[in-house]
Design a protein around this nucleic acid. Structure first.
Ligand SMILES: [Mn+2]
Ligand SMILES: [Mn+2]
Ligand SMILES: [Zn+2]
Ligand SMILES: [Zn+2]
Lengths: 175, 175
DNA sequence: CACAAGATGAGAATGCTTTGCATTTCCTTG
DNA sequence: CAAGGAAATGCAAAGCATTCTCATCTTGTG
């Protein structure tokens, strides 16, 4: 519970406590909640307490997260890990989150709404992930998609290598 | 064993039977074998029978493969699945193969040598993977890498969506 | 407020991947 | 070419993220 309060204070997307939000009044819902509700409705699914908590936790984070992370954020709120795993694909299908990277054998996601498309630069040494804008690449990809008659859904551009810091300290080990 | 012969006949990289190759004579080795040997030497590791078979099987395939696939190709040659799993990261580190896509919970690789960099277009419906040339994107990425002072190792551009065939049959279901 | 459809939690199961360990294979040296 | 130490392997037993089962709740509707 404490961790949730901390998150809420520091996060731009969820300004009030997750605990205080009122699911029954649409006028208090965030954009992403409305979008999720609409999506669920179309599928004959329900916006439940657990799903709403998971959604809000996703948008409360400004970093990549995995199922375990969401679950730990919601510790004490009676949301099972199974439900987190069941909800993630729904959020993906709803266009609210996407798989960002897979590292250490775990799938890590990020929310999309309000987050412009970007590439991930993963340092193999320190595991740091840097994001860069890909607006210059997008037109080329979209053009290719049109040529292939391929309906774009998700674009993943992940580049691995060695970051500036690590290649420096490898060359000049200061220990 | 049969499958190996078939592969050898159809594959551009391994023109003679895997069984006939002679590991002890460098002049009969393929480029990729020499590269692997050099890499292993630098690490104080050995180019063993199993490793050589796995390497050759990787280059005998002209499609994405996973550990299980390699293992089944080498069925009857006494190469354990564990050794396949142990060898794959070596081949990756040696710069000979790379992780191409992860689908259905399995890591699928492809060999690199003689295979120009490309993007993967994964149809979420029929799971087909299409490859396209990315030479127009590379300069932009390399330029960004220079700006970040990032030492490039691997570039993964995976795009998911719906392929031409599937979006057609979805619109006009013919069943 | 009752009902039917959906959703959930807890834990078992799944299946890819990794590991421990006894045995075998390599490669160098004499 | 035999011996010896280092490294590699096969086999089976874990590990571990993710999925599934099922009895029990929730949710939205009328
Ligand atoms: Mn990101
Ligand atoms: Mn490929
Ligand atoms: Zn680094
Ligand atoms: Zn398709």
């Amino acid at each position: 519970m404490q961790s949730i309060l901390i998150l809420c204070l520091t996060d731009p997307y969820s300004l009030k406590s997750l605990l205080q939000m009122n699911l029954n009044k649409d006028n208090t819902m965030q954009d992403y909640e409305l979008q999720f509700k609409k999506f669920l409705l179309k599928r004959g699914l329900k916006l439940t307490r657990s799903r709403s908590l998971i959604l809000n936790a996703s948008f409360a984070l400004h970093e990549h997260f995995d199922a375990e992370k969401l679950h730990s954020i919601l510790k004490g709120m009676n949301v099972s890990l199974a439900t987190v795993y069941r909800t993630l694909p729904l959020l993906v299908d709803a266009g609210l989150i996407q798989l960002a990277v897979r590292s250490d054998g775990r799938d890590r996601y990020e929310h999309i709404l309000g987050h412009p498309k970007h590439a991930h630069w993963l340092c193999e040494n320190c595991k740091t992930v840097t994001e860069t804008n890909i607006s210059s690449l997008l037109p080329l990809i979209e053009q290719e998609a049109k040529a292939l008659n391929f309906t774009l859904d998700q674009i993943t551009i992940n580049i691995s290598g060695t970051c500036w810091k690590c290649s420096n300290s490898e060359a000049n080990p200061q220990s």
